[in-house]
Simulated assay, not measured.
Amino acid sequence: MRHLFFALAPDAALRDAIANDAARLHLAWGGRATKPAKLHMTLRFLQGFTDPLPDDVVAAARAAGDAIASVPFAFELDRADRFGRRIGWLGCAVTPRPLQALHDALTESCRAHAVPMREEERFVPHVTILRDPKRAVPSAIAPLRWQVDGFVLMASAEGAYEVLGRWALRA
């Protein structure tokens, strides 16, 4: 099964900063650390597919990405938390409005282009840093500034991610 999703990909400096916080939390929380090359923030999950990915779905997702008009913005990762016992993450104590707006615009564009999406209860912006943390204790972290200049369409590919499309945000 391959998963298709829109995401924010951190630049090298931010990826290193996230990886450093992840390493520190891995020592405290246990679990399995996410490889730095896989660090990203999912904006919108699409459906999972068998391999190969359907060309029409990838084309529709690219068209949905093409339709997004948003200006660059910045926000901060300022919280370490978990989802149940399976996922340790870095994210936002409060979802920034521009980030929520980008998520919502992608959702609407996917609907308009008939891109099949995974159901979601709500958008919780986060970067998965650990799987199966044993002693996760939610807490504030020193803020990590994320400058958002664009987003990507990614597909999972045997333990890695493949970028299928890239879009710049324009002022």
Rank of each mutant, 00 (worst) to 15 (best):
R2L: 13
R2S: 04
H3D: 02
L4P: 07
L4H: 04
L4K: 08
F6D: 15
L8P: 02
P10K: 08
D11V: 03
D11S: 00
A13T: 14
L14T: 06
D16W: 00
A17H: 04
A17E: 13
A19V: 00
N20R: 15
A23C: 05
R24Q: 02
R24A: 03
H26M: 05
L27V: 05
A28F: 02
G30Y: 00
G30H: 00
R32L: 05
K35D: 15
K35P: 10
K38C: 11
L39H: 03
F45G: 11
T50A: 13
D51E: 13
D51M: 07
D51L: 04
L53F: 01
D56G: 10
A61W: 00
A61M: 07
G65H: 07
D66E: 12
S70I: 14
S70R: 12
V71F: 01
F73A: 03
F73V: 06
F75T: 05
F75A: 11
E76Q: 11
E76I: 05
D78K: 12
D78F: 05
A80M: 05
A80P: 02
A80L: 04
F83N: 10
R86Y: 03
G88C: 08
G88P: 06
W89Q: 06
W89C: 04
L90K: 09
G91I: 11
V94G: 01
V94M: 11
T95L: 09
P96V: 05
R97Q: 11
L99G: 12
L99I: 12
L99H: 07
Q100Y: 06
Q100D: 00
A101H: 04
H103I: 06
H103F: 02
L106P: 08
L106R: 03
T107H: 07
E108S: 12
S109C: 11
S109M: 12
C110Y: 06
C110N: 02
R111L: 14
R111I: 13
A112S: 12
A112R: 15
M117Q: 08
R118N: 11
R118L: 12
E120Y: 05
E121F: 01
P125V: 09
P125L: 01
T128G: 10
R131Y: 02
R131H: 03
D132H: 04
P133Y: 08
P133H: 06
K134L: 10
A136R: 06
A136T: 09
V137M: 10
V137W: 01
P138G: 08
A140F: 03
A140K: 15
A140C: 12
A142V: 09
A142C: 07
P143M: 04
W146R: 05
V148I: 06
V148W: 00
D149F: 03
M154K: 14
A155K: 03
A155I: 13
S156V: 09
A157N: 09
A160P: 02
A160W: 05
V163K: 15
V163W: 11
L164N: 13
R166F: 00
W167Q: 15
A168Y: 08
L169Y: 01
L169R: 15
L169T: 09
A171L: 08
